[in-house]
Write a protein that binds this DNA or RNA. Structure first.
Lengths: 204, 204
DNA sequence: ACACTTATGGAGTGGTCGCTCCATAAGTGG
DNA sequence: CCACTTATGGAGCGACCACTCCATAAGTGT
């Protein structure tokens, strides 16, 4: 059954992609609905609200798109066919490459888009916190797998190791914003991954 | 010579300290002048602008206060009487303890207060970027000193090591906001500092 | 041709934004 | 007591905030 009613004059998915970029670059509150209307193709306010409901629910859709695309750098961590160590290295390098990429704003949307929120936008805060927790959980899953597979010593402090990698990943967002080069970040990833080797069984 | 004119009815320094906390917690744009007036002791708009000039210059003073107090965690890095390795460990642990502290908002003001800015507030962006650069420069100074003192191998990629520690430090801000415990963060610092040992001369 | 559904442009909502003006208050030195 | 200086409360500025209303346009099925 085909849709009835007057057809929409813009591509809704394209608009969400553009909105994602704007929220990503400026953050939720710093980009106004008027600017969104303009950048999304010169929509009228009526069209905007008919299509997306509210600024908040547009953000929700943009955040979902982000997690489904750029946010999937943690995918290797959950892939049982990749060794935990290789998965972690891959994810860290991916994180650098995606966040330093030039086809979109720098940094991680989950870290940057909902940082400065006034009290009325608690819902947005919850959304980005949930997104950041996904990364943390994926890292924890990877570390657990490594210990269970005897690829990391049983003596290690799992939580500390998770926090180490997670903290580094989240710091990348700030670093790419500050202009730190992809090359330097990738080199620092290599040093960080040496830590993994030093925690392999029978090393200490 | 004593000041003339009607005396101010509030303590300007106290007010700046409170403003620092508010900017730190919510970010520059998310805290309004009306809220600042209220929290700074119920000032009228006239009093606010007479005392501070503008929202932007109040932020500037708050940022200076932050750098002079909480931001001085990098002090050990510049202290020639502390070994580079000890200085780095100290700074990392300090960073965790300060940012997870309970007498003020969580995280690092330089990372968190100027993240989501609309185009008109470029000046604020520059201020926080400058503050973040100070940390990076202090780390670089420490690493250089370590290499020159033969406390780190000459073969290391200095820039990569600087970026490693700097990225971790900046990630702490996000982690404390997400409720990661001081204990877990301190443990991850210990693992990170093991990296330093592995790069000491004659280790590879 | 007609009802039905959905999208659109334009005008306008109350509220908040950072900031200013002005008369008055409360201190100082002569 | 009187100038002089600075601070204060209150009223109000234009601009923007997210959002809504409504008449009309542009498709559908019958």
């Amino acid at each position: 059954m085909s849709r009835t009613g007057r057809p929409r004059e813009f591509d809704r998915d394209d608009a969400i992609r553009m909105a994602m970029h704007l929220f990503w670059e400026f953050g939720y509150e710093a980009i106004s609905v008027a600017q969104l209307q303009k950048e999304l193709g010169g929509l009228s306010a009526a069209s905007f609200y008919a299509a997306f409901g509210s600024k908040q629910s547009l953000f929700e859709e943009a955040m979902s798109l982000y997690m489904a695309t750029c946010g999937d750098i943690v995918a290797p961590l959950k892939d049982p066919d990749v060794s935990p160590r290789e998965a972690m290295g891959k994810t860290l390098r991916h994180a650098v490459e995606v966040q330093a990429g030039t086809s979109h704003p720098k940094g991680c949307m989950a870290v940057l888009a909902g940082t400065n929120l006034s009290a009325k936008n608690r819902e947005i805060l919850k959304m980005v916190e949930r997104a950041r927790a996904e990364t943390r959980d994926a890292i924890a899953h990877c570390i657990n797998r490594a210990v269970e597979n005897h690829e990391l010593s049983k003596k290690i402090d799992r939580e500390a190791l998770v926090v180490l990698f997670d903290t580094f990943i989240k710091g990348i967002a700030i670093q790419t914003r500050d202009g730190i080069s992809t090359k330097a970040l990738l080199s620092s990833v290599e040093i960080l991954m040496m830590t993994w080797e030093s925690l392999e069984p029978g090393r200490t």
